[in-house]
């Protein structure tokens, strides 16, 4: 059993469990699933700076901070006790394309030649780690949600604005992948 859990899970199992998060949070306490709101709560908690956007009672949303604390804990547990004994399996085509664009390490979940503290101080690493992170925080808040709030929760509730947002997430990602990343990897 443990052996089975340690190997990468099939997409249907993961999708099923992630989908169940929606009713689980609703039934446990009338909470709507959405992770990026936590970035706002952290701002409201730590650096509200008298900005109207951060002046609200973030403590009422504390449940969500517990939720993401759980996500960190879950990441730790999965990595320490349930980690995959084998190297990551990546589609040949992806590997080929990325190798030609300058990625050399394929055995881990993240390419360690790009996501490391050494890389952080190169222009290439700075763009992927810092600029990328900034766009995630800025973009999700402007869009009013991320993959969880719009693509999962919003679509589950058949919300048209969430469909628009999800399509834009995908279009943005595809544009960056095809037009931006080959150049940025060559820096």
């Amino acid at each position: 059993m443990l052996e089975l859990i340690r190997h990468p899970w099939h997409w249907s199992v993961a999708g099923f469990l992630i989908g169940l998060t929606v009713p689980a949070l609703l039934i446990l306490g009338n909470k709507t699933f959405g992770i990026s709101s936590n970035l706002r709560h952290i701002c409201a908690m730590c650096v509200p700076a008298n900005i109207p956007f951060f002046k609200y009672d973030w403590k009422k949303e504390a449940w969500n901070l517990f939720f993401i604390a759980g996500v960190v804990l879950g990441g730790f547990i999965a990595n320490h006790f349930l980690s995959n004994p084998d190297a990551m399996v990546i589609a040949e085509k992806t590997k080929e394309q990325l190798a030609s664009e300058g990625i050399t390490q394929f055995s881990n979940l993240l390419p360690t030649d790009l996501f490391s503290f050494e890389s952080l101080f190169s222009l290439r690493g700075f763009i992927f780690i810092v600029v990328g992170g900034f766009l995630v925080g800025f973009g999700t808040r402007w869009a009013g949600g991320c993959t969880s709030g719009h693509a999962i929760m919003g679509l589950s509730n058949l919300q048209l604005p969430s469909l628009v947002a999800t399509i834009c997430f995908m279009v943005g990602g595809i544009l960056m992948t095809w037009l931006g990343i080959p150049f940025l990897l060559s820096l």
Binding site: I35, G74, G133, G139
Partner: peptide
């Protein structure tokens, strides 16, 4: 915002949830 988040998603390879899980991992 959706487009900008899409750019960031492709670069970091993570939306907000996975960012937290990656740190834990």
């Amino acid at each position: 915002g959706g487009l900008l988040f899409g750019f960031g998603w492709a670069l970091t390879g993570a939306c907000p949830g996975p960012l937290f899980a990656q740190i834990g991992a």
